[in-house]
Design a binder for these strands. Structure first.
Lengths: 315, 315
DNA sequence: CTAATTTATGAAATGCATTTCAAGTCAAGG
DNA sequence: CCTTGACTTGAAATGCATTTCATAAATTAG
């Protein structure tokens, strides 16, 4: 590989001058600039980006911690992040965590090791104390609200959105309501349960199934719910694909939607449009865009993104 | 920031010894190793990854050129890539190109500048000559077949899959058939047209609409097709979401599926399961996994991934 | 026609960790 | 007792580009 010294030697100038040409510095004599450019062209020279990153101490790269890499919700966030990143000439490295604490820490270490200028945490396994201990080494932004001032947030008010959805069910005359969530121990599950309790009173455990991610999970969950003695007349699904699975199961049992069973999905995905499923749209793309902007600005603001309910034919 | 010299000074050893401890080199006296580790712990030292990448000349990072970052097909490929990457402790940087030649070259330059050990091209805008001129600087793998020996390929036989799909229509008695594609100038569009001509004879231009990506595009395309004087009785959609849109339009016109209109989608996405749409599954996740493996192995093999047709209720 | 700028350029320091080279100690084998 | 091989360690070279400092020439301002 040819390096800046080779170019300097061949062009008969010092490395400083080559560097100046490379970085479009003003004060370089026209003839020297031209001969440097000529040599660069001839040798097909490209500066080593690792050396530049090392000396500059920044990489214009952001790491994005994603628990799952085939999940439509996280794909939406990532999509938003990529939009803003490309706009600002930043690169995005995807960091799949599968909610492993060790993996997450490994990624935060990479922030410390100067590989990324910042990190976006779309969802986390570690506690905030652990995460905050890395906030000196770069900008850390979360897609979940936290009051800790070291962390920027681009988030939505999950609790309110769940309240709204449940209230919608109630207004339509549903009192026996079930729901699904992804992880039992997650923050959103907790908020879901709180909202449920608020609207319908103490949750009976059989009306909640966790571990739902895809269409098949929804199909199965609906089966379980609809075999209960006192079966629910409405189900909130943590995703439109999960909702789609529920819809299919209901249809397979000759149930009419929304008369026999009402369903609300989440995140306004294409399948929900296709199947006519009402949904709570948390605007994850915007959440991602905002999160990326915060990292780029090195801001620790807390920005709330509004959600909206899209009513279709399943309620 | 503390660096390896600080650690060496504080531990009373040379930097070489610190480096040896860091890299688990065998021959370091127990007491020195311990005191180095103690200082590292105390100072919360983390080696600078840019310096390591610079000197090692490799980053264990792979760049993935994706034309669109919100497209379910490319998401599937990316998903496969991430699976393999994490298995092998590689990082993935997403490089959105939007089919811009300039962007693509910019990304290939980053390969040359040693930022990535290899690049996966899921779809390309540049000609092969341009791409090949970068193959000396790292491993380049394409998700599209090319005979050029400099490039590894993880691909599927699009042409055969289209032949099969069209033959399926024909077997079911469809002779007036339409289809959609994404980009007019793409390779897959060309193969699609060739396959169409092979099965149904010379394509009439009104039976082909390009520029289709999402459900809404499919809805609109179906509208156009179904307003033709001699309207098609079957449509091949370049994606299950597009197919879903067609399905919805047909339903809105009180058409029965598959009797009045048959539809085949592509890539076996959740919406296709939800709506019961038959599909050609090119197994993009596997394509991605294989592509990533090839880059990691620095192999230039050509690996063909088999496709399969999933029959549901839309044909 | 000086003094103050502006323009132009190179040497050397810097950022950080790895690796080679050389040299030294110590124990086991003959 | 000498040789050989296994340990152990540090100095210095290496990978590469940026930036500061110093210097000098050419302008411009006063």
């Amino acid at each position: 590989m040819t390096n800046i010294h080779d170019i300097a030697r061949l062009a008969g100038v010092s490395v400083s001058t080559v560097s100046r040409v490379l970085n479009n510095y003003k004060y370089v004599a026209r003839d020297k600039r031209e001969s440097v450019l000529k040599v660069i062209e001839e040798m097909k020279y490209t500066p080593n980006k690792n050396a530049i990153d090392l000396i500059r101490g920044e990489t214009r790269t952001i790491g994005v911690i994603l628990p799952y890499n085939n999940n439509p919700a996280f794909d939406q966030i990532l999509n938003g992040i990529l939009n803003k990143a490309i706009e600002n000439d930043f690169s995005i490295t995807v960091l799949p965590s599968n909610y492993s604490k060790e993996k997450e820490v490994e990624y935060l270490q990479k922030l410390k090791s100067k590989l990324y200028d910042g990190i976006i945490i779309t969802s986390r396994a570690n506690d905030w104390e652990t995460i905050i201990s890395y906030s000196d080494y770069g900008s850390i932004v979360s897609c979940e609200y936290t009051q800790h001032k070291e962390i920027g947030c681009s988030y939505m008010d999950r609790y309110s959105s769940y309240l709204d959805a449940f209230q919608l069910f109630k207004n339509k005359g549903h009192y026996t309501v079930a729901f699904t969530t992804a992880r039992l121990e997650s923050n959103s599950t907790r908020q879901m349960i709180d909202a449920y309790n608020e609207i319908f009173g103490e949750l009976q455990p059989e009306y909640h199934i966790s571990g739902c991610h895809c269409l098949e999970d929804g199909y199965e969950a609906a089966g379980q719910f609809l075999h209960l003695l006192e079966r629910p007349t409405a189900i909130y699904a943590n995703g439109d694909e999960v909702a789609g699975g529920m819809y299919l199961y209901a249809k397979s049992q000759q149930l009419k939607i929304p008369t026999d069973l009402a369903i609300i999905g989440q995140e306004n995905q294409p399948i929900g449009i296709g199947m006519g499923i009402s949904t709570v749209d948390h605007q994850l793309t915007k959440i991602g865009e905002q999160a990326c902007s915060l990292v780029i600005k090195k801001s620790r603001e807390k920005v709330k993104i509004p959600y909206r309910i899209v009513e279709r034919d399943s309620v």
